[in-house]
Design a binder for these strands. Structure first.
Lengths: 342, 342
DNA sequence: ATTTAAGCTACAATCGATTGTAAAAACAAA
DNA sequence: TTTGTTTTTACAATCGATTGTAGCTTAAAT
């Protein structure tokens, strides 16, 4: 019934040669005559041989696979980075295992153990919102598995990272809102456990200060940055009677929630309140008014991070073992939600 | 330098017992005393042992992994199915390898070979738009690897599939447009090589016929169903002077392209032309006017398909070997882009 | 023809875990 | 104490491919 898959031994037996020769032939070793190689290749094709990577990897103690951990693939930014990662790894013959933490630390820990058990050769991580501890990620170091962070990194870990300049981006966004006449700008931030959100806050604050605008504690809120939270925060602000004429949200979803709520209560965007988000999700262009935001070029981030990792995996000299930090500068995309002047 | 990871032999050596006992202890076999198990578990934790799944899987000739091939994960529908798949496989301790064909047959073929080499225990596929041949997918059968299709299936293959009732859904959408007063409805379809697009067309045609509306060839177009194509098709129609008062697109992106173009030339949606899409991408709710569409409950499809597959993998009786087709009924979501009546 | 070198191939160990079975240990019964 | 039974552990083969090395072939050089 269950026909066993052919092995190199099967080929060797049929050809009356040794399996080691078959192995070398299939790997195009120069220890084997072209004639033998041809014979082996022909027979292999004939009986439908397909290399068992489990065995091969075990022997070589190398899986030719890298693991990727992202919060969730449904976010456009992350699926872009994954596209970039796949492109880079594909080019060098590496496989990619994609895992979603769903923003849960517990899940992230399970994924880590699993990837180590699967003996991945390297790992790319963008941590979950719940991740404050690094004990689980340190396991990769202990197992000698190179790790590169992208976008969401843990600052206390010395690994290579590929980030965007969140401070500058936020500064630019905030400055833009100020240029449009905003004086009382609300900031919807993410959990301060993550550097990117701390930085977005920093850039915001910095822009206010440099423009001699007062910084008010009650205009800053942190949340899980989904649409619902965005709505809720703005509703609360209004209910409390806190005045504001601009909103800078640390991501697009929360910004969209905010816009929808503002529209629902008759507040005009951008005339009464100008709004800007972060990440340039496709939806940001579609909503009405279209959302001013920051493009993070996820594809590039993924590509660069992956190449950094692959370089680290393949080279063993000290040079490549040094952690590198790459910072990309994001671009401000100005759309209707913040355009007040002609 | 490179410390080798501890193995069961290491544990065995330290405890002065045999590695087979260690293995059984770690697998909680009842051939080992509780006392020994405790000893082993303690030592394993102490030296940071982590099972080498490559070795384990090789010996068991079972990878505990299922492969998933989707066109692209950035489509919301597919990332939803993946979420469903992960949920189901997670519950049964299976790993998931996610692969994107990027709608390319060539890429799909490479992925197939790779997954077989990695000895996945089963496979879930939604084929690319270019996939008309089934030779590469037949390899799974030859290798005795169960395969279940979801959403986009190849009708000539007898495998289990989980689909939505595209005909009925399209019929409902078209009927809805007719109810709103449309008489000349354009259909933007996908490649007829895929059943789902053929079915969407069938449902459309059927609704026209049952309402005694003429079917006009020049109101039907097939395309790659992206935003740009949607734009282009509608532009062409208008330039050619072909009249229409409704559009039923086989996916949301093309519908959105159509709406954007219509708006740009001053044609009012839904007053002049009512528009409906398919898939319920998040963006369909955000655009203005919001898009009438069909929800495919991707999460459910993924969950069901995965359970079907896992059932097929674990059970070996004839019963489970029978191909099952599950058809879900999708729900019509009526939004602004088609609402003409109060 | 003989030596020497170079080119190929075969042998055997190895990667780390699993598993059927033989052997040993523990315990109970006679 | 001896025999019989049941638990528990050790031995050894196995999964499929890779790789260092010994040995055999072949061809070139003397």
């Amino acid at each position: 019934m269950k026909k066993n898959k052919p092995t190199i031994h099967e080929i060797a037996r049929l050809l009356n040669i040794d399996s080691s020769t078959v192995s070398r032939a299939l790997n195009n070793s120069n220890l084997v005559t072209q004639k033998t190689k041809d014979k082996v290749l022909k027979k292999a094709k004939e009986i439908g041989y397909q290399r068992n990577l489990l065995a091969s990897n075990l022997r070589k103690s190398k899986s030719n696979t890298i693991g990727v951990i992202v919060p969730r693939i449904s976010r456009h930014f992350f699926s872009s980075t994954i596209a970039g990662i796949e492109e880079a790894s594909y080019a060098q013959g590496y496989n990619v295992i994609i895992c979603q933490s769903m923003e849960k630390l517990e899940r992230e820990i399970k994924i880590v153990n699993n990837l180590i058990s699967n003996r991945v050769d390297g790992i790319l991580v963008s941590v979950s919102m719940e991740t404050t501890e690094d004990t689980h990620l340190k396991q990769f170091d202990l197992s000698n598995i190179p790790l590169v962070f992208f976008d969401r990194a843990l600052s206390e870990m010395p690994n290579s990272k590929v980030l965007i300049d969140s401070i500058k981006a936020s500064y630019d966004v905030t400055q833009h809102l100020i240029d449009q006449g905003c004086r009382k700008i609300v900031h919807i931030g993410g959990p301060a456990t993550l550097d990117i959100y701390k930085d977005r806050f920093k850039g915001y604050k910095q822009a206010l200060q440099e423009n001699n605008l007062p910084f008010e504690e009650n205009r800053v809120y942190t949340s899980a940055l989904n649409e619902q939270e965005g709505r809720k925060i703005i509703k609360t602000l209004i209910d409390l009677g806190i005045e504001f004429d601009g909103i800078f949200s640390a991501n697009d979803l929360a910004a969209i929630g905010a816009i929808k709520y503002l529209k629902s209560v008759g507040i005009k965007v951008p005339q009464d309140v100008a709004v800007a988000g972060f990440s340039n999700e496709p939806i940001s262009e579609a909503i009405e008014p279209s959302l001013t935001t920051v493009d993070q070029s996820g594809y590039e981030i993924g590509r660069i991070a992956c190449n950094l990792l692959l370089d680290r995996i393949s080279r063993t000299d000290n040079e490549s073992a040094i952690a590198k930090s790459v910072t990309l500068s994001p671009t401000l995309i100005i759309r209707e939600s913040s355009k007040r002047k002609k």
